[in-house]
């Protein structure tokens, strides 16, 4: 990119973040599909082979933490850890956005809108819950029978809520192809960033005429932050 040219794209998610997202999407897709087959008798009749689907469901569930742990483990997880910190923090603008239910056009959002922040907190908690209750259901031997009942109850209702959240997530992503591109190719158009996430845009591309912030492989110069790992 020539100096002085207006940047068209802004780097949004690095390779690790995108890898984690799509690894999770794949596992959750497998879990939703096999879970639905096991849950609805009608589907069970169509597909038969319950034991196979149960096995796939259990393996995919137990594998769920692995991409997270791998992505967070090393230097390559720096952007991910920083974004987790960003997802945690709610600014005054975020609260104004929530109060207006997203309609207040004057709020200036950072990298994520508060809906995305709440969704990530919910999905994270829901996956932890599904994993724990699923483990009780699969390895019920040592637990009291009432725990099995409780785990069934929580697993079912959390699955329903998670299903709604995922449907909404996919719906909104498809409705905003620019945002979706951020998770597919890693970059979003500068126009999108300026309009939808102005505070983030100013931080990553403070000068419109400055060259595009360099994308991978070297996302950013190092600055050790004590908050990064939190």
């Amino acid at each position: 990119m020539a100096p002085g040219q207006q940047p068209r794209d802004v780097a949004r998610f690095d390779r690790t973040e995108r890898w984690l997202h799509w690894a999770n999407a794949t596992l959750v897709g497998v879990l939703v599909t096999t879970g639905a087959i096991l849950y609805w008798g009608e589907l069970s009749s169509i597909f038969g082979r319950r034991a196979l689907f149960k096995e796939i469901h259990v393996i995919a569930g137990l594998a769920l933490p692995i991409p997270f742990l791998l992505a967070l483990a090393g230097r390559w997880g720096r952007a991910l850890r920083r974004d987790l910190g960003v997802l945690n923090r709610f600014s005054a603008d975020d609260f104004a956005w929530l109060r207006s239910r997203g309609r207040d056009r004057s709020v200036r959002l950072g990298k994520f809108n508060p809906g995305q922040k709440l969704n990530s907190a919910f999905v994270g908690a829901a996956l932890v819950t599904m994993l724990a209750t699923g483990t009780v259901l699969r390895f019920f031997g040592p637990f009291p029978l009432a725990w099995r009942t409780g785990a069934t109850f929580v697993h079912d209702w959390t699955a329903l809520a998670l299903g709604l959240a995922i449907t909404g997530h996919v719906w909104l992503a498809v409705a905003d192809p620019d945002a979706l591109r951020g998770m597919v190719s890693g970059v979003v158009p500068a126009r999108w960033a300026k309009e939808k996430r102005p505070r983030w845009y100013e931080a990553v591309a403070p000068d419109d005429r400055a060259p595009e912030p360099e994308p991978e492989p070297e996302p950013e110069p190092e600055e050790l932050s004590p908050a990064a790992g939190s």
Binding site: V128, A146, W147, A151, F153, V154
Partner: peptide, 21 residues
């Protein structure tokens, strides 16, 4: 807020193993 929501929901979900029945 994000961390509190996450921890709160996870605690709610996990404790459900005990109160869920």
């Amino acid at each position: 807020v994000g961390r509190r929501v996450f921890l709160g929901l996870a605690a709610f979900g996990l404790s459900g193993i005990v109160w869920g029945s």
